[in-house]
């Protein structure tokens, strides 16, 4: 998806994990995904460089759909759809 498409998504859950280092964002995502419905979009905000690879890998392994990443000044927004 393009940056514009990602930014236009209706986000069902936003997880702000910018205050944590690995594995904080992954665990925050893991906990939050349990609180949303199948098909809902979740965004994870992270300032941790490793999270850019960590979350997509985890999401795909668990059967969720990784949608893309938007780079913001000093952090990333990572988008995924719950299976």
């Amino acid at each position: 998806m393009t940056k514009e498409e990602l930014q236009a998504l209706t986000v069902g859950k936003s997880v702000d994990a910018r205050g944590t280092a690995c594995p904080g964002p992954l665990l925050e995502a893991k906990k939050a995904i349990a609180t949303i419905n199948s098909g809902d979009i979740m965004e994870i905000l992270s300032a941790d460089e490793g999270t850019k690879k960590d979350i997509p890998k985890w999401a795909n392994k668990k059967g969720h759909e990784f949608l893309g990443i938007v780079e913001e000044p000093g952090y990333y927004k990572i988008y995924m759809k719950k299976k």
Binding site: P23, L26, K61, K62
Partner: peptide, 11 residues
């Protein structure tokens, strides 16, 4: 702790 956290995230 970090490694076990990754394993926990994978259920």
């Amino acid at each position: 702790g970090v490694i076990l956290s990754g394993a926990a995230a994978d259920d």
